[in-house]
């Protein structure tokens, strides 16, 4: 195999495809026109619930809080049978151990944010130690942030090398790379950052930390899904997608599902390749599932907050 054909031949990222903002927004709004009714709605809602990374990323997080969240992850709403679990719990590295222990063999993954989340403003060796700590504590998945400052300065090699180094530190853990699209400014840059992350070894690309507004939007997610599609055709390698932050309603989550279905198709319509990073989405989905099953809405008080 020639070097130039290798998966690891690094392209010139300044040549990443350009994105027309108006066109991308128009296309994204088209997905919201799909009408999701009846069994298609119920199945969609269950799929959404099963794709959630139930998240708590607060300075005041404690083991008690994380334990409660883990129980919620395993038993979202036992009052109604046949409800799936969420995909994963997403916490800070210091909470990985307790989460792992509480979740036991439930199959629910533990994801940890790393690399001086959310700013990423730390030296590389600190970021690598941060990552190794989370993995050693038992994290199945690692959510890193890219160095947006270096990216804006045009130092794409730095960003690439950093992601590759973290990927190496992950071992068997799957790596999600947070682009923090709210800080990137244009879709051109979102596309470029997506290409860098995937080429450097990301298993997932993720929109946001949830700490910056705007977080996930449909157009930004569309641009990333299309980057994933192009990368797949170029390399044969699948990369997952995780929009995070700002998706708190079922209806919006179903629109995202429509987008995945129509841009990437069947292979990505599962929680191995698509996730929602969200804290309050789960209860809205549960409320809608119960409504679909019983025909009436229950009050919010019937659904546990944690």
């Amino acid at each position: 195999m020639k070097r130039s054909e290798s998966l690891f031949a690094i392209p010139d990222f300044s040549l990443s495809p350009r994105i027309d903002q108006v066109g991308a927004e128009e296309r994204a709004s088209r997905f919201t026109k799909r009408s999701i009714k009846k069994e298609s709605k119920l199945n969609g809602l269950k799929l959404v619930l099963n794709m959630i990374d139930l998240t708590t990323l607060e300075g005041k997080d404690t083991e008690g809080k994380v334990r409660q969240l883990c129980y919620k992850a395993m038993h979202p709403h036992d009052a109604v049978p046949g409800i799936p679990t969420v995909a994963a719990i997403c916490v800070y590295p210091s909470m990985v151990k307790v989460a792992k222990k509480t979740l036991g063999d439930s199959g629910i993954k533990v994801a940890s944010v790393v690399t001086a989340f959310p700013s990423g403003q730390a030296p590389r060796d600190v970021k690598i130690r941060d990552t190794k700590f989370a993995v050693n504590e038992g994290a199945d998945e690692v959510d890193m942030v890219i160095s947006r400052g270096k990216f804006h300065a045009g130092d794409y090699n730095f960003v690439f090398d950093e992601i590759a180094a973290i990927k190496e530190a992950c071992g068997d853990a799957r790596l999600k790379v947070i682009l923090e699209t709210g800080e990137l400014g244009t879709f051109d840059k979102v596309r470029r950052a997506s290409d860098i992350a995937m080429q450097a070894g990301a298993d997932f690309i993720k929109t946001s930390t949830g700490k910056i507004q705007p977080a996930a939007t449909m157009p930004v997610t569309l641009v990333m899904l299309e980057a994933i599609r192009d990368f797949y055709y170029k390399t044969g390698r699948m990369v997952g997608m995780k929009p995070a932050g700002g998706i708190s309603k079922s209806k919006l989550a179903l629109h995202y599902l429509v987008m995945v279905k129509e841009v990437l198709g069947e292979d990505w319509l599962n929680n191995h390749w698509f996730r929602f990073g969200a804290s309050s989405l789960a209860n809205d989905v549960l409320m809608q599932i119960v409504k679909e099953k019983t025909g009436v809405y229950q009050a919010a008080n019937y659904f546990s907050v944690d």
């Binding site: 799909r34 009714k37 009846k38 298609s40 799929l47 055709y233 044969g236 599902l257 198709g265 292979d267």
Partner: peptide, 23 residues
């Protein structure tokens, strides 16, 4: 290797999750 594969790659849009009629 991957490049040679790309000729045979195909996305599957016949998805298990589909839209119910909405007339």
């Amino acid at each position: 290797m991957a490049k040679a594969k790309s000729n045979t790659l195909k996305l599957n849009f016949d998805t298990s999750w589909s839209y119910a009629p909405a007339p």
